[in-house]
Design a protein around this nucleic acid. Structure first.
Lengths: 114, 114
DNA sequence: TAAATGCGCAACCAAACGGTTGCCCATATC
DNA sequence: GATATGGGCAACCGTTTGGTTGCGCATTTA
């Protein structure tokens, strides 16, 4: 409602975008999108990066809620949470539709003038 | 088709995500989503940042195709291009639906077992 | 109990990022 | 022609980021 709320909301969107704005993290999300919960070493085996590098990336994803982790014995199991992805989809569709509407109005205005 | 192609594709998505992963740039996109093409100083007036800072951000957006610029007289006019946004929407919906499908299969499998 | 596996933590490093300042050029405006 | 406006370019700077290495701890497994 208030412009303050919208400001805060877009800050969150920016954070999620930023979290996805890294090839490694995006591939982790893609890897986890098959519905399987995986351990850190499991996820590390796909990349040439160190386990610690993957760990850092997973924490970035966790901080924005794109991923949840559970400790099971000696390993940390990560699984995807698609809700932030849906948030982004909504945000993008709002921007796109605002653009489309604006163009439609502009077109109507121009046609009205001629 | 090939895994190489998909790899390159997701690299592009990551770049667009990264471009949107900054509060200032995201606000520029939002500002331009009203269908109006604006000059750099025009866009700079909204923020407390320097004109040069805004210029840099606009070039980042331009590099990933989120924005186009045209020189008109002594000013550079920028306008939004929503196609990359649609790309992201598609990408996100693919990931989400893959997740949903996987969960559905998992559920069906579990119910089959019991 | 000893060895192996999976992680977490901290320190460290180079590169990228976001931002500023200063200067100069081109285009409008008076 | 003189002045004001809009913008490009380059240098510079502090902070963040992505990555590594080293070490220690807890949990399995032999």
């Amino acid at each position: 409602m208030s412009s303050r709320r919208r400001r805060l909301a877009s800050e969150r969107q920016a954070q999620i975008f930023a979290a996805l704005g890294d090839q490694t993290r995006l591939s982790l999300v893609a890897r986890l999108s098959d519905g399987t919960a995986r351990s850190i070493t499991d996820l590390s085996d796909d990349h040439k990066l160190t386990r610690q590098a993957i760990t850092k990336h997973l924490h970035v994803l966790e901080d924005v809620g794109l991923v949840r982790s559970v400790r099971s014995g000696r390993e940390s199991i990560f699984e995807l949470d698609t809700r932030p992805l849906n948030e982004l989809q909504d945000y993008l569709s709002r921007v796109s539709s605002q653009w489309d509407d604006a163009l439609a109005r502009l077109k109507a205005f121009v046609e009205d003038e001629t």
